[in-house]
Design a protein around this nucleic acid. Structure first.
Lengths: 348, 348
DNA sequence: CTGAAAGCGCTTACAG
DNA sequence: CTGAAAGCGCTTACAG
C-alpha cells in the first residue's frame, strides 16, 4: 500500500477515470460534479489512501491550511527556560489544535519579538515562508498597530485575542473581564463581605482596565466603596501591599487579585501572620493557572477560557479562508468562577 | 516595501541580473557561484527582503524544512483538558523550536493515537500532507515497531526519544537513566543512608528497567541491600505502599520515587503521620515537573533533560536532511540532580 | 561558473 | 457537468 512515492491526485484521477480537476472538485467539495463521478472519485481516494499534499495545494494558489498563532518570544522562552509550566501556551495549543484538526487545518505556533522593528521583520518572514491562511495575535502583539497594518496590507486575515482596541480595527476575541470582576464581587458580597479590595494589575492593560471598571461598578451597586491598589501583576508588589494591610490593621476582609502570582503573595503574607484563609480573609484571583490547585488552601478563581478563545479565533479564520463572511467584529467568551477553598464567610 | 504579492526568486534574479538557478544556489549555499554573482544576489535579497516560499521549495523537490514531533494523543489531551500543565509538551516545544529556528527549520507538533491501526493511518496522513523532513517519536510511539517500519519504508528519517529498543533499529536519544539512579543512591549514601528503597514505576518501561538496574547495582556497590517496591507510577499505589511502610514501622530511611506523582504521595502520607522530611525521611524523585518546586518542602529531584533531548533529535534530523551522515545510533544526554529540601542526613 | 528546460502536485480561470 | 491549458515558486538534472 504505502510505497516510497505518495499517491497523487493524478493516481486518483486515473483510477476513477476522470480528469484531475474533477478530483480536485471532489476534494474541495465544490459543486458541479455528477453524483456518479463523485462516487467513483471517493471510492478511489479511499482505496488508494490518497491525502492531498498541502505544499502543492498552496502552490496551486489555494489555501495553505495553516493557522498561525503568534506569541511573545521573550516571555514564552523565559517561562520555558525556568522550567515553569506555561499554561497559556498549553491551553492555546489545546484549543487551537483541536479546532484546526476538526476542519482539516494545522496549527502553527511561532514566537515573535516585542520590539516593533524586529516584530515586523519576523512577521514578514513568517508570512512569506509559511503562507498561513490566518494569524492569531496575542498580547502584546495584539496591541501593536503596525503589525495589524502590515497584515492588512498583505491581505492576511488575522484575529486578535484581547479586548477591542480602538486604534486597531480587527476581529477580536476576548473574555468578559468586566463581567468576571462583577461576578467576583457578587460572589464575595453574597458571603457577607463589604470591604472588598481589588489588588489590581496594570491599568495600561486593556483587560486590567475592564476588570477595574467592572469591580468599581459592582461595588457601587452593592453600596460598598471600592478600594483599588496598584499591584502591578507582581508577586513582590503584592506582598508589600498585603504586608501593609495586615500590619496596619485596616486590611480588607476580602481581596480580589488580578492574577495568580499576586494571590500567592497575599496567601504567603497571611500565612506568616497566622491569618486564616478563608476564616479571616477571603481571597479570589483571576487567571487560574495549574498551580492554583496546589496552593494551600486551593484558590478560588476566575478561569480564563484560553483554549476556547483560541479555538474561536481559529474557527473565525477558517471561516474566512473558506469564504464565509464573518460579520461580528467582537466575540466575547464566558468566564468561569471556580469556587475552591479561599473564599467563605468571615468568622472570628 | 511590502506589497500584496511576495517577493519571489524571480524578482531577486532580475534585480541581481542572474538566472533564478543562481539565486537558488546562493540561498542553498551551494558551491560554484562566482564571488561577484554571489555578492549581487545577496545584496538583492537583503534589499528586497526576499524570503523563500517553503511550499515552493518543497514542491521543487527539496526539503520541506519541517521537523515533526509526534506525541500521544489521549495522554496529551487529557492533561490539557484537566487544565494541568504539560511539562513534557512545554519542554519539547522549547527544545525543538529553538533548535529548528537556529537552522532555518520549523517545528510541527502533532498528536497521534496509541491504537496501532489508527496510528498508522494518522502517520500516513501527516507524512503526505505535510511532508516533514524528519520525525521525532516519543513514548509510546517510540516503542511501536510498525510505525518505525512504516517510516523506514517511506524513507522518512526519524529519531526515537527513549532508550534503544532491540526490536526497532533506529537513531535514539535518551537520558542516562541507570546513571541517574546510581547518582541518586550515591547522593543518599553520602548523607549516611543505608536503607534506601526504590519506589519503582513499571518494569515494562525500558526507562524504568534501566533505573532499577542502576539502583540495584549502586546499592550493591555501596554494600547495602536493594529494596524495590512496584509503585506503578501511580499516586494511589505509592500512597498505599508508603502507608504500609510507615504504619508497620519498617520503613526505609530514604526513598527514591520514579516520578513526581509517587513522591507527592509519599510526602502526603509522611505529613499525615508527622514524619518530618528530611529529618526522619529523605525523598528524591525522578522527572522534576514544575509542581515539584512548590511542594512543601520542595523535592530533590533528577531532572529529565526533555528540551535537550528534543533539540538533539532535531539537530540529528536536520543533519540528515542536509546530507550529513549521522554515524552514532545512540545518543545519551546527561541528567541533572537537583538537591532541594527533601534529602538530608537522618536526625532524631 | 551559469542558464534553459522540465517538473513537483495542485488549483484557477477558461472553454466546451 | 467536465477537461485541456497555464501557472504557482521553487529545485533538479542537463547542457554549455
Amino acid at each position: 500500500m504505502s510505497s516510497k512515492r505518495s499517491v497523487t491526485i493524478e493516481d486518483v484521477a486515473r483510477a476513477a477515470n476522470v480528469s484531475r480537476q474533477t478530483v480536485s472538485r471532489v476534494i474541495n467539495r465544490l459543486p458541479s460534479v455528477s453524483a456518479d463521478a463523485k462516487a467513483r472519485v471517493e471510492e478511489a481516494i479511499a482505496r488508494l489512501g490518497y491525502v492531498p499534499n498541502l505544499a502543492a495545494r498552496r502552490m496551486g494558489g489555494a489555501r495553505s491550511f495553516l493557522i498561525m498563532a503568534i506569541n511573545d518570544r521573550a516571555r514564552t522562552i523565559e517561562n520555558w527556560a525556568a522550567g515553569r509550566g506555561n499554561d497559556w501556551v498549553d491551553q492555546m495549543l489545546y484549543g487551537g489544535m483541536m479546532a484546526c484538526e476538526e476542519r482539516g487545518y494545522h496549527m502553527l505556533f511561532e514566537l515573535v519579538d516585542t520590539e516593533p522593528t524586529q516584530a515586523a521583520q519576523q512577521m514578514q518572514r513568517i508570512l512569506t515562508s509559511l503562507q498561513p491562511d490566518g494569524i492569531i495575535l496575542t498580547q502584546p502583539h495584539s496591541e501593536n498597530p503596525a503589525l495589524a497594518a502590515q497584515l492588512r496590507e498583505r491581505a492576511r486575515p488575522f484575529v486578535r485575542i484581547g479586548l477591542p482596541n480602538p486604534d486597531i480595527p480587527a476581529v477580536s476575541v476576548h473574555m468578559d473581564e468586566a463581567g468576571a470582576a462583577r461576578a467576583a464581587v457578587e460572589h464575595l458580597t453574597a458571603l457577607g463581605h463589604a470591604d472588598i479590595a481589588l489588588l489590581a494589575g496594570d491599568a495600561r492593560y486593556r483587560g486590567s482596565l475592564a476588570r477595574r471598571e467592572g469591580y468599581v461598578a459592582a461595588m457601587r451597586t452593592a453600596g460598598h466603596s471600592p478600594r483599588v491598589e496598584e499591584g502591578d501583576f507582581s508577586y513582590d508588589k503584592a506582598a508589600t501591599i498585603a504586608a501593609r494591610w495586615f500590619d496596619e490593621g485596616d486590611g480588607p476582609s476580602a481581596i480580589i487579585a488580578e492574577n495568580d502570582e499576586m494571590a500567592f503573595a497575599v496567601l504567603r503574607e497571611a500565612g506568616r501572620r497566622g491569618i486564616k484563609v478563608p476564616d479571616r480573609l477571603s481571597l479570589l484571583c483571576f487567571e487560574d493557572t495549574p498551580g492554583v490547585r496546589f496552593s494551600v488552601p486551593p484558590l478560588s478563581a476566575i478561569r480564563q477560557p484560553t483554549a476556547e478563545m483560541v479555538a474561536k479565533a481559529c474557527d473565525l479564520l477558517i471561516d474566512r479562508a473558506e469564504g464565509k463572511e464573518v460579520e461580528e467584529e467582537v466575540h466575547v467568551l464566558p468566564f468561569e468562577l471556580i469556587v475552591r477553598e479561599t473564599t467563605g464567610p468571615r468568622r472570628r
